[in-house]
Amino acid sequence: MNNEPRHMRRIVTAWVIASVIGDLLWWFLVGPHIPPGNMTESAHWNQFDFNVLAVTAIPVVFMVWLWMGYALVNWRDKPGVPDPVGGEAAKAPYRVQAAWISITSIVVIAAAIYGTVALIGDHGSGGGEGPNPVWAPEGAVAANTAAIQGKATWSPAGHQPLVVQVIAQQWKFTYRYPAFGGMETSRLILPVGTDVVFDVTSLDVIHDFWAYQLSVKADANPGVNNVAFADTHQTGQFMVRCDELCGIWHGAMYNSGRILSKTAFMAWATKTEAQNASNTKYLPPFAWTYTPDANGASGGLYPDGNVTPYSPYDTYGAKQPAS
């Protein structure tokens, strides 16, 4: 048995070296370029999160690959390879099984805990949180409630969150700014250094608002307000795509947006608001639908009048935040 090479020592040494090199290369060379980049707070943390998972995954991948490679080279059916051990001696050692199970469990549970902390700490990480967001930046929920009631304001001074309603339909996005008279644009323009509240909804089928570089992704469900948050860090251009199959032109449902400095944004917004004023005066500053409601133009769905009358604010928003 003394001639037998010390397989485990070799493999473990190679594995440690490879993992360290792999992790370092990833962290310093690849990691900084992993999307979605640094345009918002959550983009930054989601990138960080991806890299944490990657440096955890690399040793696992290398372990299996090295093990398989080593086995392929050394433990083949060829001259000089001893017969495998059978019988009792080939039974799996209990400690190996226990070690494997406990190590994988620890890694997995740690990953889940880490993910949870990252999710909560980063206010939902830019993901859609439904009509009643559970984790929100300070003041964002209050600003959103105000916007829903048509009382939104925003100014470059201070740290006021900006509310933007994202309205998806086949096959385009429209952005409505309740703080600027409910003006609507087809390009998403945002100020830098601001908490942005996206109220994502749809007029027809399910879409998904994916502002790629902002690391915001929220399904646009008809009649539902799906709220997501982003804290803008850098100025620049970003891409918006629909990320849920929404019919034949799904592939063409994209446009770009821009983050401007606060003053530039304010100038743009004021100008656009004035340009659109003649149209926006007929539109609500905030709504989940353009379709006639049960009390609407058609006289209601039920001629017997059995539908409880309701206000535009709590229509489709039966589950909206209490005002």
Partner: peptide, 25 residues
């Protein structure tokens, strides 16, 4: 074993909500 390792590990990425924001769909 080779392929499923890649498939399985990327599954962990997908299950992590913050990373999921970017990779979902």
């Amino acid at each position: 074993y080779f392929n499923f390792l890649i498939g399985g590990i990327t599954g962990v990425f997908l299950s992590d909500v913050p990373v999921n924001v970017t990779v979902h769909g």
